[in-house]
Write a protein that binds this DNA or RNA. Structure first.
Lengths: 241, 241
DNA sequence: ACTTTAGGTGTAATTCATACACTTATTATA
DNA sequence: TATAATAAGTGTATGAATTACACCTAAAGT
């Protein structure tokens, strides 16, 4: 069923940089390896061009769906991931970014709670795999450039909006949260100052629960109060770290 | 010369929100009207859909040009504007944003020095016109939404990067610069604190010149030192206002 | 000469960010 | 069961940055 147009049209695709945060197993890691790792989800291409190489999940935008819908659909189809934080990143349109055809891609980035999705991702017997951001394989097309832009955006965003909870389990400790910030921002933060700041934002709820099964004093668990966050955001409150 | 594809493809366009800053004539303006006005450049459509309405300058992306090139080409063709600050804004891809066909647009925003371009724009006998941002006519398509996003972006950008010089003449006074910030940010700033901050950034060069033909003490003129700005930016310097 | 207009300048008070160290609770182990 | 090991949890003093604020100066107009 071919489609004919008066003028040539570029292909239009969406691609997703999916970030996840993995807690490294204590046994396995060496003493100075970080306890958390930022990872992204890649798909092994089984079609040319770049067959056999790794690429961002994505695909063609259909005429009956919006860009956001296309990004969510591709994410669901290729990785089984649904209902995650997803935001448009940037559009990449260099003429030769695909060696064969003109393809313009609208890139998105997503934040995935790996505590929730790890199981599911494993069961979807697919060619998808999580890679530590510091050990990515060579990527197809200009996807390394897209990943670079996405990392910068994630850093910038995290500095100004409390977005990190998307990457953590529902109940988390302040230390986990701090490690998340340190991992993404690639900087060490002062424990007391971090806690002061984040608790002062008044968007965390201290639960009547503590960590289980830890070989030391158990930390209190918190959850993110999204409702309160929206109210404060409404009022122009500043969430800078 | 028709083009045939296996699958339907959305149209792909670029649109530009072109910002300019106009100094209002003293005689004409009422006492409490602001001395500077932020304006955007619109084109009157002479084809359906939305024939006769005003729209952002823009047009189809050709297969042999990048998105950035397309934006600059359209700007040149439709408004005669060249070599201005131009940055990608966001891509808009709702299914029905064009009532007749599926069109995805990559929006850009541009900053134009009206002291330099006013004459030129006048000579290009075209259907382009500058409108004060507070008195825009009804816009075609979803262009009002694009303008809203562009205004937010301009505000955000101006707060964190010394981008405002693009809107001013090469030589300007500190008061002009302050008015620019006040106009774009829609906020009053303290004169002494503003000067302290902007001069401390060390990106302005005080010239040995003062304003001419003013009916009061003439203000010193400054210019933006782009070279120094790049060096400081390199080092991660913070330009927040 | 006087009025009008905008230019130009410094300091004190307050707020915010930073640096920093010890006690507590829990489990593991000797 | 005492002790070691581990991370949790907590407050203050110092310095830096931001804010608020008012008067004199220079030039042209009347």
């Amino acid at each position: 069923m071919p489609y004919t147009y008066e003028f040539a049209r570029p292909n239009l695709t969406v691609d997703c940089v999916v970030f996840g945060l993995e807690e490294e197993n204590y046994r396995k890691r060496s003493p100075d390896e970080p306890p958390l790792q930022l990872k992204i989800l890649l798909i092994e291409r089984n079609l040319p061009p770049f067959k056999g190489e790794w690429a961002l999940p994505g695909g063609f935008v259909r005429v009956e769906e919006s860009l956001d819908q296309a990004a969510r659909r591709e994410l669901r189809e290729e990785t089984g991931i649904e209902e995650v934080f997803l935001e448009q990143l940037y559009s990449f349109g260099e003429v030769n970014r695909d060696p064969r055809e003109r393809v313009v891609t609208v890139a998105y980035y997503a934040l995935v709670n790996l505590w929730k999705y790890r199981l599911q991702a494993a069961t979807d017997a697919s060619d998808a795999r999580w890679f530590p951001i510091s050990q990515l394989p060579p990527l197809a097309f200009d996807h390394d450039q897209i990943v670079t832009v996405a990392r910068q955006r994630l850093q910038g965003k995290l500095r100004y909006e409390p977005i990190g909870f998307e990457l953590l389990p529902e109940k988390f400790t302040l230390t986990q949260l701090q490690r998340l910030y340190e991992t993404v921002l690639a900087a060490e933060l002062d424990k007391r100052n971090f806690r002061k700041k984040i608790l002062n934002m008044d968007i965390l709820v201290a639960l009547d629960e503590v960590q289980q099964d830890v070989a030391h004093r158990a930390a209190r668990l918190y959850r993110f109060d999204e409702e309160k966050y929206r109210q404060l955001k409404e009022k122009g409150f500043n969430f800078q770290i």
